[in-house]
């Protein structure tokens, strides 16, 4: 009993070292794990897979460096998937960090030979419209007019000078929306405005923290699919047969989950043993 009592009073810092180890060690011994994509991830993959060549997709980013480890692999996966299918991509974001990270994702994608050789051109095959303040109101405003909402792209080039944006007036000219979000404003705003009000089909990727709250939208088909957290990112990489940090981090994620589960079990055993002892 003294042992358990001692364990309950274990210094936090020892636990900190244990969890750091659980995360770092598997990074050094990468073992290949087989993924079983969730139905929600499969839904997003299928929806994008079904889009015809030449369609125009909006990819919006509402995340920041703090949540990039979860969202960035999804963003990279989506860009690769769209480029492979010959889909035109309009990037934007409702968080100011979003467009910058989307730029970084593009760089990552073009580092790979396959995409470098596609020779995709800015302004013709993809654009980055940047950030606008106002959250959900921005989406509502895009429903009236995208050029009025985004008079220029992120770098200040007038939108009329971008061939891709020619003929794009509002959501009527958008085939699909992919939203990658880490909080508010984010996926619910896109569902409420882009999907429910302007009837554009959409799917989303989000941090694991917000994923469970979005499941009701999946059942009603307000979302065609959902990538939840790093697991969702890894599923997407697995489905699109590409490599990325989603799958790369999965061993660490697995071991860390196992360690946390063990912590909870040991902690509870210790708690009940000590409590029983005290009752006596």
């Amino acid at each position: 009993m003294g042992f358990f009592r001692g364990m309950l009073n274990l210094d936090r810092r020892i636990i900190f070292i244990l969890i750091a180890g659980a995360v770092v060690v598997p990074l050094f011994i990468p073992f290949h794990l087989k993924m079983h994509p969730t139905p929600a991830s499969q839904g997003l993959y299928n929806a994008v897979e079904k889009l015809p060549e030449g369609s125009t997709v909006i990819i919006s980013g509402e995340y920041d460096p703090g949540t990039a480890p979860e969202i960035q692999p999804m963003m990279i996966g989506a860009l690769k998937h769209c480029f492979r299918k010959g889909i035109k991509v309009i990037l934007m974001g409702l968080w100011p960090q979003g467009p910058a990270l989307e730029g970084q994702a593009l760089q990552e994608v073009f580092k790979e030979k396959e995409f470098k050789e596609m020779n995709l051109q800015y302004g013709k095959d993809y654009v980055n419209l940047g950030y606008k303040a106002g959250g959900a109101v921005v989406i509502q405003s895009m429903g009236t007019s995208i050029p009025a909402t985004f008079p220029t792209d992120m770098a200040g080039t007038p939108i009329e000078k971008l061939p891709l944006m020619k003929g794009i007036r509002n959501f009527n000219d958008i085939t699909f929306v992919l939203d990658f979000s880490a909080g508010d404003p984010g996926t619910p705003a896109w569902v409420m405005f882009a999907h429910d009000r302007f009837h554009v089909p959409m799917a989303a990727g989000c941090t694991a923290v917000s994923a469970p709250m979005l499941y009701p939208y999946l059942q009603t088909k307000q979302l065609s699919g959902l990538l939840g957290g790093l697991k969702g990112a890894a599923d997407y990489e697995w489905l699109t047969k590409s490599s990325g940090t989603g799958i790369r981090y999965m061993p660490s994620q697995s071991i860390a989950h196992l360690v946390i589960v063990i912590f909870i079990i040991i902690g509870n055993i210790a708690f009940f043993v000590v409590r029983k002892g005290e009752k006596r």
Partner: peptide
């Protein structure tokens, strides 16, 4: 970038220690 992401990464440590010491 490193500052924001590390502030969030701290939380993993707190979750781990609370798992052991408080989640009952």
């Amino acid at each position: 970038y490193p500052l924001t992401s590390t502030v969030f990464a701290l939380l993993a440590f707190f979750v781990a220690s609370a798992s052991f010491r408080a989640f009952r």
